[in-house]
Design a protein around this nucleic acid. Sequence first.
DNA 1: TGAAACCCGGACGGATTTGGTCGTATACTG
DNA 2: CAGTATACGACCAAATCCGTCCGGGTTTCA
Lengths: 151, 151
Amino acid sequence: MLKLTKKADYGLIALKYLAEHPEIAAVSAKDIADSYGIPAQLLAKILQQLTKSGLLKSHAGMNGGYALARDAREISAYEVIHSIDGPFFITSCTKGSKSCELTPNCTIKEPLARVNETIAGVLRSISIQDLAEHEHPAVASTASPLVSLTH
Amino acid sequence: MLKLTKKADYGLIALKYLAEHPEIAAVSAKDIADSYGIPAQLLAKILQQLTKSGLLKSHAGMNGGYALARDAREISAYEVIHSIDGPFFITSCTKGSKSCELTPNCTIKEPLARVNETIAGVLRSISIQDLAEHEHPAVASTASPLVSLTH
DNA sequence: TGAAACCCGGACGGATTTGGTCGTATACTG
DNA sequence: CAGTATACGACCAAATCCGTCCGGGTTTCA
C-alpha cells in the first residue's frame, strides 16, 4: 500500500526529537520512547541501525544515549527510511539484477522506475531539520510536471 | 518498504496490455494472464475490482472479457493503484479520522502528508497511455525542488 | 570495585498482510 | 443446452512486521 513501516516512522520521529533538542548531548532511547509511547526496545534497535548507518552517534554508559552524527540539515528523510526499511522500489518485482524472472516482457517496470526515482528525489530533498520546523507552511505544489514520461 | 503490491503491478500490466491492443473488443483475463505468466484467477479478481471502480468494462460469455472504460489517456496510474491497494498513505499511523491514538504529539505526520500528496500527484499525472508508449525517453529530472516544506 | 544506566544484537512468537487457490453461482453466446 | 467467461466469497500458505525477551558489553559515578 505504498506506506512506510512503523519502524521508519519511529526513526523519523526520533531523529526529529533529537533535532529539536540540540542542547542535550545524548538522549537515551528510553527517553524518546517514553515521550511518544513507542516500545522502548523496538526503538532501541532502530536507533542502533541508524547508528550503524552513520546517521547517529551512540555513547554507552550512564548519561549516554544518541546524538545526530551530522547537522540536522544534512540528514535526509531518504537516508533514514533507506537505513531502516532498506532500498525501496515502487515495482514489487525488482530484486537483484534480474528484472523479472517470471514475466520476461514486464515493460511496466521501466516507466515506474522513473516514478520511483522521483519519489526518492522528493525524500532526499527533505531534511530532518525540515521536519523539526513544523509550522504550517504553504501547501506543496503538486500540479507541476514532475516526470516527463513521454519525453 | 514503500512499494506497490503485486496486485497493483498486475493491474497496471493488464491495463497497459489493453491499451496496447485497442483493436480487440474484449480480452479475457486468462489471455492476459497467460501472456505474462500471471496466475489467472488472481488477475481475474483484480480486473473485477477495476471494473467495480469503473476503470474497465466487462462482458461475460463467449468472446467476452474486459476493455478499458475510458481512453487510455484518461486513466491514471493513481486510479489503478488506489482501486486495488486502497488509499495509500506514507505515514503508517493514518487510519480513520484520528491522527494518532497512541502518540498524540506525532508531529512527523504533517510534513509527510505533503510528501504523500506529492507522490499522489506524480502518479495522477501518469496515464496508462504513458505506460504503453515505452520507448526510452529522457530521464526524469529529480533535482528540481519538488516540495517546499519550509514555506 | 561494583552497581546503575546505558548501548548492542540475536532469537523468538504473534499478528497482520499478501499472494494465490478452490468452488460455486451467474451471465452471455451460438 | 453446452461452452465460455465474469462475479464473488471462503480459504490457505507464505512472507512481513511488530514487539518482547534475554544475555551480552561499556561507561559513569559513588
